[in-house]
Simulated assay, not measured.
Amino acid sequence: MLAVFDLDETLIRGDSSQLFTEFLRAENIDTSPDSEARGRVFMRAYNNGHMDLQDYMEFSLAPIRGWQRDQVQELIDRFVTKVIPPRILPTAQERVAWHKAQGHDVLVISATGEHLVSPIARHLGIDDGIGVQVEWHNNSLKGTIGSRRPFRGGKVSALEEWIAARQASPEKVWFYSDSHNDLPLLNAVDYPVAVNPDPILEDYAQQQGWLIFIDEVALA
């Protein structure tokens, strides 16, 4: 059995990539004057289901382009330690604990960059995470992304590749998400679950009779 969790607004309150951009501004690493406004434009596009993932990732990686891998890791460790703990949402964490108690494999899959997804997943007690592939050259961050892009239908192919690479064949697959952007994967699994769903996903989940969980803190 495999339990797959989206990250943002499912396991944590907020968008992890946007939170990282805000962290970079607070640390005076991102000093571009228009970054906050551009970030809002990208988030509106995401919520409407038509964000250009490559443009967004290149925007979010730009402040640390050229950094060495160990510098990036140290920065992200500080970000995760400082920003993530108060944003952990209870329902999905309870479901993670339930699945682990059943002996199920647990995985995070997100349209956020892998440089953030894997460390946040580990902080949440989840060993495996799939994110947007981030490219490096000689341990230097290129600021570009590779072919693995788990956004919308890309989450289906990314999960299929992850399963194939492990020569695994899970008996059943659960998937927990908040976003209508994840409908391709939600419709592909055995047990789709809506967690803190956006209005489009909530309506769809109700029509399909799916489980729906809502954290009041997510709405605060």
Rank of each mutant, 00 (worst) to 15 (best):
V4F: 01
D6F: 06
D6T: 07
D6P: 10
R13I: 11
S16H: 05
Q18R: 03
T21F: 07
L24Y: 04
L24P: 02
E27K: 10
P33L: 10
P33D: 11
G39S: 09
V41T: 10
F42V: 07
M43V: 08
A45R: 00
N47V: 06
D52R: 01
L53E: 14
L53G: 08
I64Q: 07
G66W: 11
W67K: 06
Q73T: 14
Q73F: 04
L75I: 08
R78C: 07
R78D: 07
F79P: 03
V80R: 04
V83S: 01
P90W: 00
T91S: 14
E94L: 07
E94R: 14
R95Y: 00
R95V: 01
V96T: 03
K100V: 03
Q102T: 04
G103Y: 05
D105H: 06
V106N: 09
L107G: 05
V108N: 13
V108F: 09
A111C: 06
E114L: 06
H115A: 07
I126N: 04
D127G: 01
D128F: 00
Q133I: 06
Q133D: 14
W136M: 05
S140Y: 15
L141V: 09
K142H: 10
T144E: 12
R148P: 09
G154E: 12
I163W: 01
A164C: 03
A164D: 13
E171V: 13
V173N: 01
Y176F: 09
S177P: 04
S177H: 02
D178P: 04
D182S: 15
Y191R: 11
Y191F: 15
P192K: 05
V193N: 03
V195T: 13
N196E: 03
P199D: 08
L201W: 08
Y204W: 11
A205H: 11
Q208P: 06
G209R: 02
I214H: 15
D215F: 11
V217P: 04
